[in-house]
Design a protein around this nucleic acid. Structure first.
Lengths: 188, 188
DNA sequence: CGTTCGATGGCAGTGACTGACATGAACGAT
DNA sequence: ATCGTTCATGTCAGTCACTGCCATCGAACG
């Protein structure tokens, strides 16, 4: 019964995901999560700003991968910069993570508050990518359009990647979706 | 002191916008809004599902305009269907509405919860547009990409439309942004 | 005039989140 | 070894969004 078991943050996240999966997001109380982790409600809020946030840790690492491409790429074409961001992001989704991503996504899409938080994160990602493109001298409006299209491609690719029966690696799927986008607009 | 003043819903919305503008969203209590409208907190929640929602009435009308185009258009090209949706939506933003839109947007962008609700609405709009495209026999992935790109164009156009000093009508701005998107991908 | 209906009020309760303060394990300094 | 500081955590009281339940009362209708 050590008072200071280490890894409180991780234990909270694990307990939360398990409880959300078994009794739903709304059916789970923050006090319950904390109790499962051997902690207090008050302590939960010291690690996570709010209840949804507990499922969105590790987002920072992903965002870093996403933004690394455009900053190091030598290209100046907006869509090529976006493509480099997408390739970088794909590194965050090796095949070993596919199964875990599937279960997590079930929980997230099963609740409005969590879905909204996801939208928020994707929007922030698009904003960051937009800023990265602007820093590379892309016109602001073009940067925003390209960045949001890029995030759309990522989201579609992710959805396909975790679809039942899908076995192709993330990069391949995502490149296919990107080509579909280019065909959509390049065809005229 | 008639117990049943009519237009309770509208009075609540008006009081809310005014209070949010003057004391901020978080600095305003639902009880306050209700009191300003001569009603009770309990009654507020009979008209609006939650506090943010009070700023998003009339969204249904806009969505209808947005979805009308793709359903009546004779084209089969995804981007042409999207273009018809955008033209339809523009009808919701006559010049008389510009000033009101400006003040409302200040409030919305000034608060995370409201911004998130906006993202939610835009996401729902994209989903509805995607469904409309699919119903017109567009491939699901292409439909999603085109719909989200279309919503991006709308959002950028809206931002430009309410920018300080801007006087061009909504349709014109939006068509310009759409062309920018096409140039972005069509150029290769 | 009485009955019914629908909009509203009153009220108690839950749960997310916050601020203020107390506590006690860990750890270094003496 | 003891003292003192630090810091993760506990405790507690409070605010506010939101809900369920039931009472109320004006209005419409027969």
């Amino acid at each position: 019964m050590a008072r200071w078991q280490s890894g409180s943050r991780e234990r909270l996240a694990a307990s939360a995901l398990r409880l959300f999966a078994s009794q739903g997001f709304e059916g789970t109380t923050v006090a319950e999560i904390a109790a499962e982790a051997g902690l207090t409600e008050r302590t939960f809020f010291r690690y996570y700003t709010d209840k949804p946030e507990v499922l969105f840790a590790g987002q920072g690492e992903f965002e870093a991968l996403f933004l690394d491409g455009p900053e190091t790429s030598t290209s100046t074409s907006p869509m090529e910069l976006v493509a480099s961001a997408l390739d970088g992001a794909a590194a965050y989704f090796p095949d070993e993570r596919r199964s875990w991503s599937r279960s997590r996504q079930v929980v997230v899409t099963g609740n409005v508050a969590l879905h909204d938080r996801e939208l928020h994160k994707m929007s922030a990602l698009a904003d960051a990518l937009t800023a990265a493109l602007v820093k590379r001298d892309v016109d602001p409006t073009a940067a925003a359009l390209a960045a949001e299209a890029g995030v759309s491609v990522f989201r579609r690719a992710f959805a396909a990647w975790i679809a039942e029966g899908e076995t192709r690696p993330f990069v391949d799927i995502q490149r296919g979706v990107l080509h579909q986008l280019q065909a959509l607009l390049g065809s005229r």
